[in-house]
Nucleic acid binder design. Structure first.
Length: 310
RNA sequence: CGCGGGGUAGAGCAGCUCGGUUAGCUCGUCGGGCUCAUAACCCGGAGGUCAGGAGGUUCAAAUCCCCUCCCCGCAA
């Protein structure tokens, strides 16, 4: 089976690595162009590009997939199938229909739920207890193709975006390897998605990152975990942003105004929420480094009664 | 030349605006005490060329001016 791999971030790179290890080394790798990013606008190659280059695989970075030069190259590569994992752009019809088996995509949710840009974050944020990866046959719509294979995994209340991301990257590799085997043997079964059950996972916006202490502590915890280790959920303290990078919930009856500091202990501070409280262990103050709350306490003279969120 | 914050003992910070006694605070660490005991409390100690520049200004610079290096946030 001759394959072409398309992907961009770390997630894709992990999957690509697993595919290569399983003997499905692609004939070509396609990723988005290097863009200026980060402080000082330095251009950095994508994680997929870095891996592909390290393996000596040919890499293509077309601005547009409909570019005729690129299409010619793609056609000459003669892939049997194109594997797409978090590439970052929609594929035009010409590409979708080019390979014999078309294009397949591994999506980080149990479709038809959480179609779209941020399935892992949204699933954690919504306190889902289960997630997974779906491999589907791609078609024009966004994440609407027929389902070929699904692998599931539970989400615990200590999982973060980081842990779920890593788990699903592994599952994606497995699922794709399974599917490639099925296609080779002709045993693959295609099941249409039920559009009635579809939900969308919008990308994370600025306001999604703000902690609202009037919410239930469990929701706040879920938000924090959904955005760890990037970009992190934040609140404000003394007029400055402060990200909360590690916390857990406490079930207790709290009557204090949400955001109030209820306790300052040695290694944590307790903050009142709309329902219950949040025990914060690690923070990331604006312009500073990520630090244990203990350090923050030492330097900030925070005390019981102070307010977060203002 | 995208915008902004910052580099002061092992850690987190204050001091800098309006230069001037032994550079302070919280914690850690070491020693001692109290205690049945302790991560609690009390007493005491060590530890800083204040990022770097045989720079500038000055009687005097962590504090003002100039240059370099490094770290971080935002935005992408």
């Amino acid at each position: 089976m001759k394959t072409v791999f398309m992907g961009t971030p770390e997630f894709s790179a992990n999957v690509l690595r697993d595919l290569c290890a399983a003997g499905y080394t692609p004939a070509a790798v396609v990723t988005t162009p290097d863009k200026p990013a980060g402080r000082g606008y330095e251009t950095k190659p994508s994680a997929v590009k870095r891996f592909a280059v390290s393996q000596g695989l040919p890499v293509y970075q077309p601005d547009k997939l409909s570019d005729t030069e690129f299409l010619k190259i793609l056609k000459n590569t003669e892939p049997d199938i194109i594997i797409v994992v978090a590439y970052g752009k929609l594929l035009p019809e010409t590409v979708l229909t080019l390979p014999k088996f078309g294009c397949i995509n591994a999506h980080a949710s149990i479709l038809p739920k959480y179609r779209g840009a941020a399935p892992m974050q949204r699933a954690i944020m919504n306190c889902e207890t289960e997630t997974g990866v779906t491999v589907m046959q791609m078609e024009k719509g966004l994440d609407t193709g027929d389902i070929i294979h699904v692998l599931k995994t539970p989400i615990s209340d200590t999982d973060t975006l980081e842990t779920v991301h890593d788990k699903l990257a592994i599952l994606s590799g497995q699922a794709l390897i399974d599917v490639l085997g099925m296609l080779e043997k002709g045993t693959a079964v295609f099941t249409a998605q039920d559009p009635e059950l579809a939900t969308y996972a919008d990308k994370i916006r600025k306001e999604d990152e703000i902690i609202d202490f009037s919410e239930d502590s469990k929701k706040i915890s879920a938000k924090i975990r959904a955005l760890t280790p990037f970009p992190y959920a934040y609140s404000t303290f003394c007029g400055k942003k402060i990200k909360v990078t590690r916390a857990e919930t406490i079930d207790s009856l709290v009557s204090a105004k949400p955001g109030t500091v209820l306790a300052v202990a040695k290694d944590y501070i307790e903050i009142a929420c709309g329902n219950g409280a949040l025990k914060v262990y690690e923070v990331f103050p604006e312009s500073k480094r990520k630090m244990p709350v203990r350090d923050f306490i030492n330097g900030s003279k925070i005390s019981v009664g102070d307010l977060f969120g203002i």
